[in-house]
Amino acid sequence: MKLDRTIRYQADSDRDFGRQVMAVPGCERLKDCIQCGTCSGVCPLSIYMDHSPRQVMALTREGFKKEVLESRTIWLCASCYACSVECPRQIRITDIMYELKQRALRDRVYPKGLPTAVLAKEFAGMVHRNGRITESFLVVLLYLKTNWLEALGQWRLGLGLVRKGRFPFKLDAIRRRAELRRMLDPEPDDTSATAPPTDRRTP
């Protein structure tokens, strides 16, 4: 019988990971977490999470990178900011979740079968191309990339949206797309500048 160790040693962690996250704008106050669990208590989605928000805070700070980046938790965060507002140490938990999402996308370690990650990528891609989101096209793209069979199950909703005039068939775009792209693309001479969404930085 193969025994799996269910408790991690500190030696299993990557101490740098916590430090790197805490260096990101918005994430600095993670160091002040007192593990009170208010975030988990107010989170409307913690009932579905594998690690509660409180656990994600502790795991991140201590550098348990794999556990955090592979968890469902970060992709269940709907950005309602209840935790950030209620946190007695003013930790911006929602922004830490964003940072963890970014790292999971970059390292391609997000859990398979969760379309939230795919939605973020497709969303960014559409903004990069057109400057605007056409929700109808985005949803179709999302279903094609994840589970096109499921799209068939949504025929009723789709038809309803068409009938109510809420499903545009024309792709919306800004006029000065090149101007926007110049802003979002990294400067040719500066590698530290902002990266386009498709560009993957090394971890």
Binding site: P25, S79, A120, G131, I133, P197
Partner: peptide, 21 residues
């Protein structure tokens, strides 16, 4: 010629780009 604000999704890509957007 306004553009998409980035909503919640773009913050999952890169916060600086999201702010630029």
């Amino acid at each position: 010629d306004w553009n998409c604000c980035g909503a919640t999704a773009y913050m999952s890509i890169d916060e600086t780009s999201a702010c630029v957007l």
